[in-house]
Design a protein around this nucleic acid. Structure first.
Lengths: 222, 222
DNA sequence: AAGTTCTCCTAATGATATTAGGGAATATAG
DNA sequence: CTATATTCCCTAATATCATTAGGAGAACTT
């Protein structure tokens, strides 16, 4: 007889599940996984502890489930964002800017993935892990493309380039999260991107006295 | 009346403390911090739980204490290792090789620092944190030296170079730890070092068709 | 020898994750 | 409409630790 009745139970159910997730996300990110109790989470979600176990197997399951949706969305969004961009360096730049923007928009999810999930021994068996790998392995394609087009040096090892790229990126992210997001993730980003990718380039550096011969004509439509 | 009596109590005491540390180190690294119980640790050390609290304030204190000694030793060792090496790139290379070697030699400590400690909310207040920062900030000196000697480009931002270097290094280390040290940390290291530091160089790349003018005469005594 | 300190133990205590079992509301079937 | 099943949630255990209390025995001091 109240509102939303016909599929009412569904609505309530999903509502509760969502409330649990968002409460847990907030509390985990604020106080850490260990210091957050199941009572805290249920209270904040307006439920009893026992009710929480209707939706999740337990505290750890909650931790593993929370970022799943977020990372899945990232995967889809990525292809969308990179679609149609011409040139490996342009794609690489777009990738970095896009990814950091996603982190900035969902810092709670990011904190959980980067600070708590990665240290969990079950992380490797998680779907989140598989998705993060997929996210990162897309970079391999970009480097392959760069080599094929001549933008990047022919002897570039795409896996090592990815390690440098991902390592640097993760380092920036983790520091930002640990420092409580107190500054902009995009500070100096242009400069660090150039410095990092400079070694990937075919030919000489842009600031060198001896400019390279513009092998990658693809990039300049004008 | 038993062996080691004169300063016997001391010996036993230190023995117990050492046993606790080494048991905890092993168990934390094997099963993770959360899944290791205080009973596990004390049993393995041949003590009761209560005795453990004579030596440490608690489980968390144990986690924070374990790597302290190790990291302190690293600090001292570093200066020793780098002393007398001429040239920024040579120092940088030595730094990387030396550091990874230390990780390889003390994987349990490394696992605790990289996987469990960094996510602890008290980490930032730890002396370990201060020491790790000191370890990393030494890199700034190397980059400054590289700029001053002309080995590295004049517009190099030492802090950003450090971010790239540390990020890549930590990435390699964490992957190795997560994959249970199942391969050698030194695989491809030469290649990744070159790729990473290529962008720091003054002048052109070594494999370029147009070789640079050897500004850094310092490096070539011959 | 008596006292003091050091080291360790058994046995609470307390916090918190998880489970049992049931109750009320809602949906479904006859 | 009544009976039954299902969904969602609760109160009240139970279980698993981390931590503390309080004390016993050995060793050292004086």
């Amino acid at each position: 007889m109240a509102a939303g009745k016909i599929n009412g139970s569904r609505v309530v159910k999903e509502g509760a599940r969502e409330r649990i997730i968002s409460s847990a996300k907030k509390l985990f990110a604020e106080q850490g996984y260990q210091k957050t109790t199941v009572v805290d989470i249920s209270k904040q979600a307006g439920l009893s502890e026992a009710a929480l176990y209707e939706y999740f197997q337990g505290k750890e399951d909650l931790l593993l489930t929370i970022p799943h949706l977020w990372v899945s969305e990232l995967i889809e969004g990525m292809e969308e964002q990179l679609f149609g961009i011409k040139g490996a360096f342009n794609k690489l730049r777009k990738y970095l800017w896009w990814y950091l923007r996603q982190i900035e928009k969902a810092p709670l999810d990011a904190k959980i993935v980067y600070l708590f999930l990665k240290t969990n021994s079950n992380f490797l068996t998680t779907e989140v892990y598989a998705n993060v790998r997929a996210l990162y392995s897309y970079l391999i394609n970009i480097f392959e493309e760069g080599k094929a087009s001549g933008e990047m040096r022919a002897d570039l090892n795409p896996y090592l380039a990815r390690d440098i790229f991902v390592g640097t990126m993760d380092h920036l992210i983790i520091r930002w999260l640990i420092k409580d997001m107190s500054y902009s993730l995009f500070e100096n980003l242009e400069e660090i991107f150039d410095l990092m990718t400079d070694g990937f380039r075919q030919g000489l550096r842009s600031e060198g006295s001896c400019r390279h011969t513009e092998t990658e004509g693809v990039l300049k439509p004008a």
